[in-house]
Nucleic acid binder design. Structure first.
Length: 192
DNA sequence: GTGCAGATCCGA
DNA sequence: CGGATCTGCACG
């Protein structure tokens, strides 16, 4: 379990430090887990790409809660995306988990993703990893320190191993489009 | 009430 | 490159 303090920092800091951590989901069907290899930070105070930017709605209210909770939303009517809420209460920070390296529960991931999908594509993309781990909006608001959906320490990487780039698919976000807030493990084949 | 765009994925 | 499929929000 990561200490609460880990989460009570800006999304840009948490996004970097989540790399190499283990995302674990203990579901009724079994346990699946993967190492976080790609993240994106969203900071609502200054970030037009953030769902909570000037927008406190039933869907986004969790982003204004303290860090360490799960923000899960439905995208394009079909896929779930999983975020880690960051920062203290009344900040609008969140970290989108974009890709995992599968670690545990490979068989269950295969069943959830389909028989023809190969290991490399189990968790390469925010929608795919939610499907592989069985994460849905039922986990909206889950406390990542006490619920079946948790994040654990796993591997540590040096700053030189971490790549930085603009975020994906936010062309609408004007100047925020170019913020270098996507973080990933260089040379990891599971990065999207 | 209606219309539309979205932090995606898959298959042609 | 287009279609799937649904929700939140703007508009009126």
């Amino acid at each position: 379990m990561l200490p609460l303090k880990f989460y009570l920092r800006p999304a840009t800091v948490v996004a970097r430090e989540l790399l190499g951590k283990l995302l674990v989901h203990k579901s009724p069907e079994g346990t699946t887990a993967g190492m976080i290899v790609e993240t994106e930070a969203y900071e609502g105070a200054v970030d037009k790409a953030c769902h909570a930017w000037h927008n406190r709605s039933p869907r986004t209210k969790i982003i204004y809660q303290r860090g360490g909770l799960a923000y899960v939303y439905l995208i394009y009517g079909m896929y779930n995306c999983f975020n880690v809420v960051a920062g203290p209460r009344d900040t609008a920070d969140a970290v989108l988990i974009r890709a995992l390296e599968p670690v545990q529960g490979i068989d269950l991931m295969q069943r959830r993703r389909g028989p023809r999908v190969d290991l490399r594509n189990f968790c390469r993309g925010p929608g795919k990893l939610c499907q592989a781990l069985g994460i849905t909006r039922a986990q909206y608001g889950a406390d990542l320190r006490t619920s079946p959906l948790t994040i654990e320490p796993y591997l540590r990487f040096a700053a030189a191993d971490i790549g930085v780039s603009p975020r994906r698919n936010i062309d609408y976000a004007e100047e925020a489009r170019d913020f270098p807030w996507r973080f990933y493990l260089q040379d990891n084949i599971f990065v999207s």
